[in-house]
Design a protein around this nucleic acid. Structure first.
Length: 350
DNA sequence: GATGCGTGGAG
DNA sequence: TCTCCAAGCAT
């Protein structure tokens, strides 16, 4: 029997194939009336912005252990939250996470608002995340449009318009399929489908519950959809990172300004990152080049850092000494942790 | 509407 | 090694 492209077809598939995630209420439990915790749905959705489920899982468990409720998170100190987020990327999310938690705590009595407009007024919550929380946490019939849904819609309707131009068109198609009932399960079902079957490369059309009605599959070019505007090449920038210890073995670190790249995160003092970096050591001393370059790629440029080390006790121009007992490399963003790995070897050799 | 903003895994 | 890209948001 041929299965139509309807929400019912997909929900039946989801009942059998829903992935297990720490924040998710299984469809069988949801059918018995179990509702998700809006705090956990919000936290997971923010972490999942442009980030894979595999990368998020451990961070989600860590956060909910440290801060079980939105009130706990709202009361946390900024540096602790930034340190806990270190390594996950897109650090503006962590800054907005705290802002949002504090707004919910102070202006909403510690309870997440249960309608889409109020949700979207909160820091770090945009069109996708507001629809995700409204549908998943509150079972409201809102339509989520993320990368998965865009891809699935473009394929089943054979939309040839390239992204991002196609967004409004894809949103209309997605809205037409959204059911009044079980909207939360349905939203998660489409995203599961996109993540596990209707994948960007080599989609598993052979086991797809929507294959029979998929125009992209029928015409044979589903794997090429959605079309996208070509993106520009990344430039390469250079810089110098200075790793300084005093005679006690403490590490000189600075908290980066609360905006821009790695904003609010700990890092090593350094030069600017440009075509021709101008050196800016935190103290005048005889810096020792490690001779090892750290390479790292951000969203929009490649970076090559020279790592310099020194040991002095003179007060630095910038940064503060972190006692070596309380310094955790895992509190650093990844590029800074790479610098640490290089410097650590150098200090161990001396 | 275009740009800035991380990271790690897959192919 | 290199490209693509993953449950986007703010400005």
């Amino acid at each position: 029997m041929r299965e139509p492209v309807t929400s019912g077809t997909l929900l039946a598939w989801y009942d059998q194939h829903a992935r297990d995630m720490p924040w998710r209420v299984a469809p069988q439990d949801r059918a018995r009336g179990v509702m998700p915790d809006p705090y956990r749905i919000w936290l997971s959705e923010v972490m999942l912005q442009q980030t894979t489920v595999a990368a998020v899982k451990d961070y989600f468990v860590k956060f909910t252990n440290l801060w079980p409720t939105v009130a706990d998170l709202a009361a946390a100190d900024d540096p602790e939250v930034m340190a806990a987020w270190a390594g996950l990327g897109y650090y503006a999310r962590a800054r907005n996470l705290l802002k949002c938690a504090r707004v919910v705590a102070t202006e909403h009595g510690g309870v997440f608002p249960s309608n889409r407009d109020s949700l979207q007024a909160l820091p770090g919550i945009g069109p996708y995340t507001s629809a995700a929380i409204a549908s998943i946490a509150f079972d409201l019939p809102e339509t989520v449009l993320d990368g998965n849904v865009e891809r699935v819609m473009a394929r089943i309707h054979a939309v040839e318009t390239p992204l991002p131009t196609a967004k409004p068109e894809l949103m209309e198609l997605a809205q037409a399929l959204t059911p009044r009932e079980r909207a939360g399960d349905y939203a998660q079902a489409v995203m599961d489908l996109g993540a596990t079957i209707c994948t960007p490369k080599k989609p598993a059309c052979g086991i797809c519950p929507w294959r029979d009605g998929c125009e992209g599959h029928a015409s044979g070019f589903a794997p090429e959809l959605p079309r996208k505007i070509a993106k520009k090449a990344k430039p390469t920038r250079r810089g110098v990172a200075y790793v300084l210890r005093n005679s006690k073995g403490d590490w000189l670190l600075e908290t980066r300004p609360n905006k821009g790249l790695l904003g609010g995160m700990l890092g090593w003092p350094g030069s600017d990152w440009t075509d021709e970096p101008s050196p800016a050591p935190p103290v005048q001393t005889s810096w020792e080049p490690t001779g090892i370059e750290v390479r790292h790629t951000f969203t929009h440029f490649h970076l090559i850092l020279d790592v310099m080390t020194a040991q002095v006790d003179t007060p630095p121009d910038k940064g503060v000494f972190i006692p070596h007992q309380s310094f955790r490399p895992s509190d650093l963003p990844t590029v800074m942790r790479k610098v640490f790995d290089v410097a650590k070897h150098r200090f161990e050799q001396n």
